[in-house]
């Protein structure tokens, strides 16, 4: 399959008062045309930094890409100048953020904000842009689009604002849409609306989506492939079914086991003990070793390679080495098994 985006060995660091924080440490991502890839991880796992790096939106200083390539249609975005990036942002790759309140300009009408990108990138005339903006608002399910165009963001509710944000992001038919926790700030019933909308739009436009989230439920709902991040690295990648039904990495097991199952009877949740590693002083070996119930001596000092489980499924864990003891996913962690 054709990769529309390929991130190779990405390293991103931030210089802080307390020293260098290595937020992303060697991330590889391949994004296929028209698919939804979810990047899951806890706060501080580097998932947001990764997505912002692809857009080159990491403020520099303090942040900088120290190593790696971001290949978009064969061209390395990591080497692009700010000028060149402006051509890419919004037209080839768009991004939607967590908080719809802050990602819209409160002093501009919604219509102007949608048309802004169209006029800059597609050099549309005013009437063309207006027509397209109305079309977009209808596409994202905002009724009465002609009148809504002249309204300001504060006249929209939270869910409607996120729809507007999506309309702006899709205005120039981008090839990739990066959605950074697009539903986290929304209520559950609104989240369901937005997720439905995103799936619907993908069917219509064929845009590839990178979905950044911490919610495994959202992943199961919306993604085709999943990358699990921990401690600035990707620890496991695979299709949704592989990650949810045949996970290979103990962190993925732990993550799945610590979620309550709506249908299951009440058993104690299996918590992952401890806290995530401090990335200003990252561990030498596997970042999860300190919290892993199956940690071996090798895990402490040596970084495991990405081992191929199947053609689409890879995990970075020493347990997959043939010399390691056979450890299976704990039974309690079986998802949906109780139903």
């Amino acid at each position: 399959m054709e990769h529309i985006l390929e991130v190779k060995n990405l390293h991103v660091s931030f210089d802080t008062f307390a020293g260098e924080v290595q937020a992303v440490r060697g991330v590889d991502i391949k994004l296929n045309k028209g698919e939804t890839l979810a990047i899951v991880g806890e706060s501080g796992s580097g998932k947001s930094v990764t997505s912002k790096s692809i857009m080159r939106l990491i403020p520099n200083p303090p942040g900088r890409i120290t190593e790696g390539q971001i290949l978009f249609q064969g061209k390395d975005l990591a080497k692009y100048s700010e000028r060149q990036m402006q051509q890419v942002r919004g037209s080839e790759i768009s991004m939607i953020f967590q908080d719809p309140m802050t990602s819209l300009n409160p002093t501009m009408t919604v219509g102007k904000q949608i048309m802004e990108g169209l006029r800059i990138h597609q050099k549309m005339s005013k009437s063309q842009a207006t027509a397209r903006a109305i079309e977009l608002l209808k596409l994202v399910g905002i009724p009465n689009a002609e009148a809504r165009l002249k309204q300001y963001p504060h006249q929209f509710s939270g869910g409607m604002r996120q729809r507007v944000v999506i309309a702006i992001a899709l205005a120039c038919n981008p090839k990739i849409l990066i959605a950074d926790e697009p539903t986290t700030a929304l209520d559950v019933t609104i989240q369901a609306q937005i997720l439905e909308l995103m799936k619907d739009l993908q069917d219509k436009t064929g845009t590839a989506i990178i979905l950044i989230t911490h919610d495994l439920g959202v992943v199961a709902n919306a993604a085709q492939r999943v990358a699990v991040m921990y401690g600035g690295q990707i620890v496991e990648t695979g299709t949704v079914d592989e990650i949810f039904y045949k996970p290979k990495h103990p962190y993925t097991w732990g993550l799945l086991a610590s979620m309550p199952k709506l249908g299951a009877s009440d058993t104690d949740l299996i918590a992952i003990p401890g806290s995530p590693p401090d990335l200003s002083d990252p561990p030498k070996g596997c970042p999860f070793a300190a919290r892993c119930p199956h940690a071996m001596k090798v895990c402490v000092d040596h970084m495991p390679d990405h081992t191929e489980v199947s053609g689409s499924h890879k995990a970075a864990c020493w347990l997959l080495d043939e010399r390691a003891p056979k450890v299976e996913k704990p039974v309690e962690a079986s998802v949906g098994g109780a139903r």
């Binding site: 003990p273 401890g274 806290s275 590693p277 070793a289 300190a290 919290r291 892993c292 199956h294 940690a295 071996m296 001596k297 090798v298 895990c299 402490v300 040596h302 020493w318 080495d321 010399r323 390691a324 003891p325």
Partner: peptide, 12 residues
């Protein structure tokens, strides 16, 4: 090296 390591998870 493939012996279980004694890691105190509270150390983290």
């Amino acid at each position: 090296l493939f012996q279980p390591a004694q890691i105190d998870s509270h150390k983290s």
